[in-house]
Design a protein around this nucleic acid. Structure first.
Lengths: 197, 197
DNA sequence: ATTTGACAAAATACCCATAAATTGTCAATT
DNA sequence: AATTGACAATTTATGGGTATTTTGTCAAAT
């Protein structure tokens, strides 16, 4: 039996994040969020302390959701058979989502608030992604799909390079389609290098 | 015979940029720049329109200087024999310099002003770096050091991946030494992939 | 020919006061 | 029990007035 999800809570966070994306954090009032959710402003306070907590919670959920998907994809649930393809799919899922947010009307304000209010959360998310990637790379090494030894680097160091390299591609991409295409080329070459005997 | 370099001009820009790095753009006055250069404030106006032009000129010079060095390194003047090593050195020169600036006391304000006042210059610089990298990669392909055909990508596309990947590493690096180390691992793996038959 | 001190103009920083918007709470309502 | 209208408190925006800093431009000095 699964925990019953708090639907009202999710409705609030979804509506709130839509407002934040469209009008920015500062220009979105609790009244706006309440109206967008279809409840009264006072009701918001029964579930959340204040606007900052709503923002934090929304970011938290988005991160959790993304990391859960990444974990599933890395497990091979998506159907990709090679470790390279699974990691590529995972990064596509993770960074593609954030690329969309960054390109929303007030993407840069969202980004700033995210760092201000969720600094620890951001770091934690990056750390967990790094752990997942490291695990996947180690698995790929054991399976003989890549050759860590020959690369002269640890699984963690390789994960770092992939993670930061992909982040760079995200930064430079004007849209998701371009990012996807570049990520694909990047992964092909990088994993070709990693599979050298 | 070489153009005589305008020493006073360079002295001003050097002093100005030092002030900008230390105190930020807004908090640095023309008086501060004049004092740091050792001349009167009025003299600044014989060479520069205003503070913004000083900033733009300083950024321009830094970019030019960096691109000139990159060009030299890619030509092999630095002594590196493989194309991979030359590109690695070039990126180290280029991004290492900007990493130091980004880590200066008011790095983020410098970054913002740079985008505000030198938007076109930044784009142009990235484009020129891309062109230099593309040329180097094509040369490496012709020399048989890498195998573009097998990668399925154009020289320009590969240059894009390297450039943005390195930018990602720069973003994620806490200091120059870490960046250098990661860049080294990155390039080893990436070029190993690029040299596949 | 450069460089500079000095001046007027412009921008910035404060301070106060008031108006408007937003927040957080709670008793009353459903 | 959950929701809300309405109230007091807080925060944010606005304007006006003054002091201070900074700017851009000279004519004068080196």
């Amino acid at each position: 039996m699964s925990q019953e999800p708090d639907l009202k809570r999710e409705a609030i966070l979804t509506a709130a994040f839509a407002q934040f994306s469209q009008y920015g954090f500062r220009r979105t009032s609790m009244e706006d969020i309440a109206k967008a959710t279809g409840i009264s402003r006072a009701s918001l306070y029964t579930r959340f302390e204040n606007k900052e907590e709503i923002f934090r919670s929304a970011c938290f959920d988005i991160n959790e959701q993304s990391l859960r998907e990444v974990e599933q994809v890395l497990k091979g649930v998506g159907g990709s058979s090679t470790i390279a393809a699974r990691i590529e799919d995972a990064l596509r899922v993770h960074y593609g989502r954030f690329l969309e947010i960054a390109h929303s009307p007030h993407g840069s304000e969202i980004y700033d608030e995210n760092n201000r209010l969720c600094g620890a959360l951001v770091l934690d998310s990056a750390t967990r992604l790094h752990e997942l990637l490291t695990k996947a790379i180690r698995a790929g090494d054991r399976a003989g799909e890549i050759n860590l030894k020959a690369s002269g680097l640890s699984a963690g160091a390789v994960a770092e390079l992939i993670q930061q390299g992909a982040a760079g591609l995200k930064q430079g991409a004007p849209d998701v389609a371009t990012f996807d295409k570049r990520l694909s080329g990047f992964m092909r070459i990088f994993f070709s290098g990693l599979s050298q005997k």
